[in-house]
């Protein structure tokens, strides 16, 4: 996983609540056995007017000019601003993969679905929860002002506007540590290998039917 550094990025607003993982990356693209290349099919059914299937050349497809990510002012956005319960539905990690592959590094919403939220941290994509009122304000600002950018400072746990408004967010200390240092969680867990073995041995004695 790459280290998460402080950065300033263009914001794109996706003004919908309950955006589900089927909308983020439709199922036909889940047939891939690879981890990359999903960005071109992010929000496929909203982004294109024709029906997408794996293997299609996205440059040849019919773009939906009205979809927010297709508007010229939001090209190369790195921060997605959206509404409550983002990422609900399936556990597919293809959803965070596609957002990251597209170029997003941060998703800001009033709330996220649990599994999606968790999956994001595993790949270095940062989901930030801000109060619904603050999200409302950011929506107004991003829609009013072309080229609207925000700075995300994970060390300070703050989203900072161009006019220096600071919106502090919560993040679990362990997850923050992993993101800032680009740590491999499996490697960290295996430092406890001895403890896992002892636990397993005890369990094998107490509940042998689990190991039959």
């Amino acid at each position: 996983m790459n280290k998460f550094d402080t950065f300033t990025g263009l914001v794109a607003p996706l003004d919908r609540a309950n955006v589900d993982t089927d909308a983020i990356i439709p199922k036909q693209f889940l047939k891939s056995i690879k981890r990359s290349g999903f960005g071109q099919n992010l929000f496929d059914e909203w982004r294109y007017l024709d029906h997408g299937e794996p293997g299609m050349d996205s440059a040849q497809r019919q773009i939906n000019p009205e979809f927010v990510l297709n508007l010229p002012r939001y090209q190369r956005a790195e921060i997605l601003l959206t509404r409550a319960n983002f990422g609900c539905g399936s556990s597919r990690e293809h959803a965070p993969w596609s957002l990251q592959d597209y170029g997003f590094r941060v998703i800001i919403a009033p709330s996220f679905a649990d599994i999606f939220f968790n999956n994001c941290f595993k790949i270095g994509l940062l989901p930030i929860v801000l109060d619904a009122a603050i999200v409302d304000r950011l929506f107004e600002e991003v829609k009013q002002k072309e080229g609207y950018r925000l700075t995300v400072d994970l060390q300070k746990q703050a989203v900072v506007t161009a006019d220096d408004q600071n919106y502090v967010f919560e993040v679990d200390a362990f997850r923050k540590h992993c993101l800032l240092n680009g740590l491999d969680e499996i490697g960290l867990t295996l430092q406890h290998a001895q403890k896992i073995k002892q636990f397993e041995q005890k369990r094998r004695t107490e509940q042998p039917w689990l190991f039959a």
Binding site: R35, S91, R92, E93, N119, I123, L190, I196
Partner: peptide, 16 residues
């Protein structure tokens, strides 16, 4: 409970 692919790998590698 459901998990993502990184966690599938984590469980394969560590049982945790």
């Amino acid at each position: 409970f459901g998990i993502g692919t990184s966690e599938v790998e984590h469980v394969l590698a560590t049982q945790c």
